[in-house]
């Protein structure tokens, strides 16, 4: 058996545009490869014209580029998987990293199963064991309550890694690297046909510095105006707990929680959010948490830095007024 060498990153792209998680993975891959004294690879599957130089500037020593202008236009997971498997079988990396985006989480298991290797999901930490040189894959489990340290017995050691967990690789436009291109493999009958792309709202709560969320304490959808005003005063965006999304007050893009979006803003304001475990799993890593709730025993106060026991309909307007006054007068 040929030796497995190198740290490979799957370069997720959509319609030729590289997903930022790729740069985060390349940053981590450079660290790991330096410890192993090995190279960094990037496997990219997509249309022609992808900025492969950018992947090299961000740390890739070699780029393996499977290209076709039509075949990769849509998220055809089986076609992508087959092409990635071929590259991995050809290159034989020791470590292989995918972004834990929705597409990465659907794709990576197919690749791992086809290669009969292990796959560790949603890693938040990756280290090299100083003893045996193996990858230690650290991931939360049990709804974010524990951290498991996992090792693979089979090569490549494969993981999906959470988006916005690691810093992007520093760009160095003087870096040089090689590019190897591959002809695509087509599947005769893909069994799946993607019929239509339905536009989705552009809003992304994960990028916000301040999130002001409303929970069941909010009585009607019109009252979201209040939450929006506070968010604006703080230069942030509106979030929500699950019940309000279920009631149709606000779209799913705003939902914070285990089954919604995970956020880590500088400030998280919870207005009338009781703090169910499923909500807390999505925001507990915020830098500062501030809670407003009429119930002094609401669990949200247990994880808050600051809190006011009171009605959000009284507290929020007062906060807005005070913030605006403070901004104007000094």
């Amino acid at each position: 058996m040929a030796e497995h060498k190198g740290v490979m990153v799957f370069g997720e792209q959509k319609k030729g545009k590289i997903h930022k998680v790729t740069y985060e993975l390349l940053g981590k891959a450079c660290e790991l490869a330096a410890k192993l004294d090995e190279q960094v690879y990037c496997c990219v599957v997509g249309p022609s014209g992808i900025q492969v130089d950018e992947l090299i500037f961000r740390g890739a020593d070699k780029v393996f580029y499977v290209t076709d202008d039509d075949l990769f236009e849509l998220p055809e997971v089986l076609t992508y998987a087959k092409n990635i498997v071929r590259v991995i079988e050809d290159v034989k990396p020791e470590i292989c990293l995918f972004g834990a985006t929705s597409f990465g989480r659907s794709l990576a298991p197919r690749v791992a199963a086809a290669l009969k290797c292990g796959l560790t999901a949603d890693c938040t930490g990756l280290e090299i064991d100083a003893g045996d040189g193996k990858l230690i894959q650290i991931r939360p489990a049990f709804s974010e309550n524990i951290l498991a340290h996992i090792k693979s017995k089979v090569l490549p050691q494969m993981s999906t890694v959470r988006y916005k967990e690691f810093d992007e690789a520093v760009r160095d436009s003087s870096r040089k690297g090689e590019v190897k291109t591959y002809e695509p493999i087509r599947i005769a009958d893909p069994m799946i046909e993607i019929l239509e792309e339905i536009q989705k709202e552009e809003f992304s709560i994960a990028d916000a510095k301040v999130v002001v969320s409303a929970g069941k304490g909010l009585k009607s959808p019109e009252d979201l105006k209040l939450i929006r005003e506070l968010a604006e005063a703080l230069g942030g965006v509106v979030g929500s707990s699950r019940p309000l999304v279920e009631e149709g007050f606000i779209s799913k893009a705003h939902q914070v929680g285990y089954s919604g979006n995970r956020v880590k803003p500088k400030l998280y304001v919870a207005c009338g959010v009781s703090g169910a475990p499923q909500h807390i799993a999505g925001m507990k890593e915020s830098e500062m948490i501030f809670a407003i709730n009429t119930d002094p025993s609401a669990p949200i106060f247990n994880i808050a830095d600051y809190g006011i026991v009171g009605d959000l309909y009284e507290v929020v307007p007062k906060l807005i007024e005070r913030i605006n006054t403070r901004k104007d007068v000094q």
């Binding site: 796959l119 230690i136 951290l147 507990k284 890593e285 600051y306």
Partner: peptide, 18 residues
């Protein structure tokens, strides 16, 4: 192909609690 080497229950993030 994978095994759990260790499990830690991370401490809760310290909060002001005011």
């Amino acid at each position: 192909p994978t095994m759990v080497k260790r499990v830690e229950v991370p401490p809760a993030i310290k909060r002001e609690g005011r």
